[in-house]
């Protein structure tokens, strides 16, 4: 038998929940950032601990390993310089061709390094938090990548930290193209296909008999959020749906979204 206090508690918590869930989105984001600010000391402690550990690791590494790493990086740097020379040449050619057909020129990206400071506390969203915010000029929809490929987009920038919606999250649908066949598709948001979160589902615009496992998927540039040509992943398998009208493919993402420590935010 419920007492009067129990009814009061039920009504109180029910009302609070209804009010919170029906708050307008900007106000809700503001309230969230105010509550989330209570974790800033913990984020600070974590950053300090990471930095201390990094320093301790460098101190503990033998000199020979450091020299090996230095030589490897110098070699890699030289290779990348040659690649950049070739890329600059291709870029100039691309800009000339775009000008010739009257397409607007593509602006260069300014990549900004961000550290991953937190992951999504639930299993049904695919987001993470980075240590850059609106004070670092981060804006919604800025593209986030790492060395392997596309990671996601900035979904909610706070003052000091921002939330990034990862590829496959409900807030991060990606227009893609199969590099080999030029078939267009969409990375379907809101699917959990594997434990490690590395598999997503791609729906192609039509029945595409030419696509097969092992082909590369990149961003198509359609939709206006993600620039064209960013590697997204590799096709694992395909199947036809709705009486062979659409082709669906499972794609293994290039970037391991569970092991991200540092990412690049592409700022225009």
């Amino acid at each position: 038998m419920l007492k009067r206090t129990h009814y009061l508690v039920l009504i109180g918590v029910g009302t609070l929940t209804l009010v919170l869930l029906n708050l307008p989105e900007p106000l809700q984001a503001r309230v969230k950032s105010v509550i989330g600010a209570s974790f800033l000391p913990l984020f600070g402690i974590r950053a300090a601990t990471d930095s201390l550990l990094d320093r301790a690791t460098y101190q503990a590494l033998p000199r020979s390993t450091l020299i090996d790493n230095l030589l490897r990086l110098e070699r890699e740097n030289a290779e990348l310089r040659v690649s950049i020379l070739r890329a600059n040449d291709a870029l100039a050619e691309n800009q000339r061709l775009r000008a010739a057909i009257g397409a607007p020129p593509r602006g260069p990206w300014r990549p900004r390094l961000a550290r991953v400071v937190g992951r999504e506390p639930t299993t049904w969203w695919r987001t993470l938090q980075i240590n850059l915010g609106s004070r670092d000029d981060l804006k919604p929809d800025q593209v986030v990548v790492n060395g392997d490929g596309l990671v996601g987009r900035v979904s909610q920038p706070g003052l000091t930290h921002s939330r990034v919606a990862l590829v496959g999250d409900a807030e991060c649908g990606v227009a893609v193209v199969v590099r080999e066949t030029r078939d267009l598709g969409i990375i379907k948001p809101g699917q959990t296909l594997s434990g490690d979160g590395g598999l997503v589902e791609m729906t192609l615009m039509q029945n595409c008999p030419g696509i097969m496992a092992g082909q590369t998927v990149t961003t198509s540039g359609l939709g206006g959020v993600f620039p064209a040509g960013l590697p997204v992943g590799t096709i694992v398998d395909t199947r036809n749906e709705d009486g062979n009208v659409f082709t669906t493919a499972r794609v293994r993402l290039s970037a391991n979204l569970n092991r991200l420590e540092e990412v690049w935010v592409l700022q225009p």
């Binding site: 918590v13 989330g36 209570s38 974790f39 639930t122 969203w125």
Partner: peptide
């Protein structure tokens, strides 16, 4: 504990604020 735990968890999540409270 239930309300505080739900609100703190939601503030770090992409869920709407108050979703974990009920």
């Amino acid at each position: 504990v239930a309300v505080l735990s739900g609100l703190l968890s939601d503030s770090l999540s992409a869920s709407p604020l108050g979703a974990a409270v009920p």
